[in-house]
């Protein structure tokens, strides 16, 4: 890990995500798998990070911990300076709802529930009024190019369309931290370009974006590249400096 450059060069930045010697171990004895092995990673506010690595290298495992969906076996995870171990169930739910937008690798839409209702659901848990919810959900669906599919059920959508519904659901609460696990995996290059433009816009607004990808062309759009292998971070390079004039959006 001696090749790891110092990513925390930016003057105004503060760490939003801080993994400190985090390990995630599945199974026991013979079947033990170290999906993450003593990983330390800090991501500053306003950064746009791409995580790459071979299949099974632990990318999703790390993303789930960052998204407060899973807890590390060893080590600590500070989210915006607060140790997630010290947060209770309710606080974590609030953070997942208000601060984090999570795009799953396998979409995870609720079956038998229309696209627009899937997208609006985080707003329901945020206590947004019903009519507002619908309006905002439709607007976000429009922005991912699915305005005409709002009333379709997930089973009536193509893989790429389902992925865009999942992205819309992650964006609908205007989260300050967007975590996307292969958000363009099921998309053609044109659709994937549009989604990445959307991510760029969000980044330009000062939001922090972390995205897992397999494609070099997608990874190049990020400001920082984290490379994983076998549960370790083997490379961490800055592709471009963060803009100094950031819109302040605090976590």
């Amino acid at each position: 890990m001696e090749t790891v450059a110092n990513p925390m060069a930016h003057a105004h930045a503060w760490p939003v995500i801080a993994l400190d010697h985090v390990s995630k171990i599945y199974g026991q004895g013979e079947a033990e798998v170290k999906a993450l092995d003593d990983v330390s990673l800090t991501i500053d506010h306003g950064d746009f990070v791409a995580i790459i690595g071979a299949s099974g290298s632990g990318k999703s495992t790390m993303m789930n911990i960052i998204g407060a969906l899973d807890a590390p076996t060893l080590g600590t995870f500070h989210l915006d300076g607060i140790d997630t171990n010290s947060m209770d169930e309710y606080q974590l739910a609030q953070i997942r709802n208000r601060k984090i937008g999570f795009v799953f690798q396998n979409f995870n839409l609720i079956p038998r529930t229309r696209a627009v209702e899937n997208v609006a659901m985080p707003l329901a848990y945020a206590g947004v009024h019903r009519a507002d919810r619908r309006e905002r959900a439709l607007a976000v669906l429009e922005s991912v190019g699915l305005g005409s599919r709002a009333r379709h059920l997930p089973s009536q959508l193509s893989g790429g369309q389902q992925q865009r519904v999942a992205i819309a659901r992650a964006l609908v609460t205007h989260p300050v931290l967007l975590l996307a696990d292969e958000p363009t995996g099921a998309l053609d290059s044109k659709a994937s370009h549009e989604i990445l433009d959307l991510f760029d816009t969000l980044h330009a607004q000062g939001r922090t974006v972390v995205m897992i990808t397999h494609e070099a062309s997608v990874a190049e759009r990020a400001s920082r590249l984290v490379h994983m292998r076998d549960g370790h971070i083997i490379a961490d390079e800055r592709l471009r400096e963060l803009p100094t004039t950031q819109l302040e959006v605090s976590l």
């Binding site: 998204g67 169930e89 309710y90 997942r96 995870n108 609720i110 848990y125 609460t173």
Partner: peptide
């Protein structure tokens, strides 16, 4: 159960 997981991931609290 999966639906419950999704709901919790997008911010459903235990009580809801």
């Amino acid at each position: 159960t999966r639906e419950i997981g999704i709901r919790k991931a997008i911010g459903a609290s235990r009580s809801s």
